[in-house]
């Protein structure tokens, strides 16, 4: 809901601002906003900014069209480090309990009671994908739980390099539980590099070995519904988690619990309590609040300007747009 509200505000803001901005034939104006805009244009040119219509033509030491991006990245970095240091010093950074997390523990417990295995699908992307990295962290937690309870854990992987990481994660989880003997290398199975061949392989495991719990956490593509529906038909409790928004509807429809979008990153922070991750979550939240504040400011400025005596002249909304718009593709609709 907050992200949708944020987006709606953005859309409203842009639509409210559009009539007042950058229209062909608009008068330059002489008010304070016009003077600020003119100063910004001069500064841009003196820094060697790209001329209009040639985004690759910048000549200065920095591409001024990308300054907003650089400032945002630096600000985010500063916030992240600040909160990481606070977390490392022991300052509490609260993260709300995510229902999907309880569901993971519940699913493992159910599998233990039924004497059937837990199936963990870490997504189908390579290790360079951030969601796969996070999936390995969650896998370690799941491996610890299954080792503690003595439950079989099966991890089919699509990529041979991910298999190596999965082995490390499961081994680490078993060690964390004090049960190194619980690690079974044969249960980390490299099936195929081909997307649908992997999907067919996992579906086959679900049909034959009938896991009681399916945990699908990572980056998924078109195979998500096939996996989730096959898992449902095999009678397993299913918990899915991905930040790939295309596949969320399929998981929501077919799984018992779905960890959605940013909750997926937060789950890792919640489980590991690593200062790095906690700091990142808090920094992201702060930046989003800042973005909402800017959106509200833009909407108010644009609305006030549209209702003013001379809406064709540049207004403070145009100054804000000039300051925030990154180069290449921005500009008037």
């Amino acid at each position: 809901m907050p992200t949708v509200a944020l987006g709606l505000l953005l859309a409203l803001g842009l639509q409210a601002g559009a009539p007042a901005a950058s229209e062909a034939g608009a008068q330059p104006g002489s008010g304070a906003p016009a003077r600020v805009l003119a100063w910004l244009e001069e500064a841009d040119a003196s820094l060697g900014g790209a001329p209009a219509g040639d985004p690759a033509g910048a000549t200065g030491w920095i591409d001024t069209a990308k300054l907003p991006t650089l400032i945002t990245a630096l600000l985010f970095g500063l916030l992240m480090f600040r909160y990481q240091r606070r977390a490392a010093r022991g300052v509490e950074i609260p993260i709300r309990r995510i229902p999907g997390l309880d569901a993971i523990d519940e699913a493992i417990g159910r599998a233990t009671e039924m004497g059937r295995p837990v199936l963990y699908v870490p997504g189908i992307d390579e290790i360079k994908e951030i969601q796969t990295i996070y999936s390995m962290m969650i896998l370690r937690h799941v491996a610890r739980k299954t080792a503690e309870f003595g439950t079989t854990l099966i991890v089919p992987v699509r990529d041979s390099i991910v298999m190596t990481f999965a082995e490390e994660a499961v081994k680490g989880g078993c060690m964390d539980a004090g049960r190194p003997d619980a690690f079974v290398k044969d249960n980390i199975r490299y099936l195929s590099n081909e997307q649908f061949a992997y999907c067919a392989g996992v579906a086959g495991i679900m049909a034959r070995e009938k896991p009681a719990a399916n945990l699908m956490l990572g980056m998924f593509f078109a195979e998500s519904l096939i996996l989730a529906e096959t898992g449902f038909m095999s009678g397993a409790i299913q918990v899915a988690g991905t930040a790939k928004q295309h596949q969320l509807p399929f998981f929501v429809a077919a799984c018992d619990y779905t960890i959605m979008g940013e909750e997926y990153f937060a789950v890792t922070a919640y489980l590991t309590r690593e200062p790095n991750l906690l700091g990142t979550i808090r920094a992201g939240d702060v930046l989003k609040i800042l973005a909402v504040a800017l959106l509200v400011a833009g909407i108010v400025l644009a609305t006030v300007h549209a209702l003013s005596a001379d809406p064709a002249a540049p207004g403070w909304a145009d100054v804000l747009r000039k300051l925030l718009a990154a180069g290449g593709g921005g500009g008037s609709a």
Partner: peptide
Amino acid sequence: GRYDVTLLAGTTAVQTPDLFAFYPL
């Protein structure tokens, strides 16, 4: 975002909702 080139796309159904965020800029 980097070069002076216009972009057009044809996509699958599942990816189409994404494109509205970038259209028409």
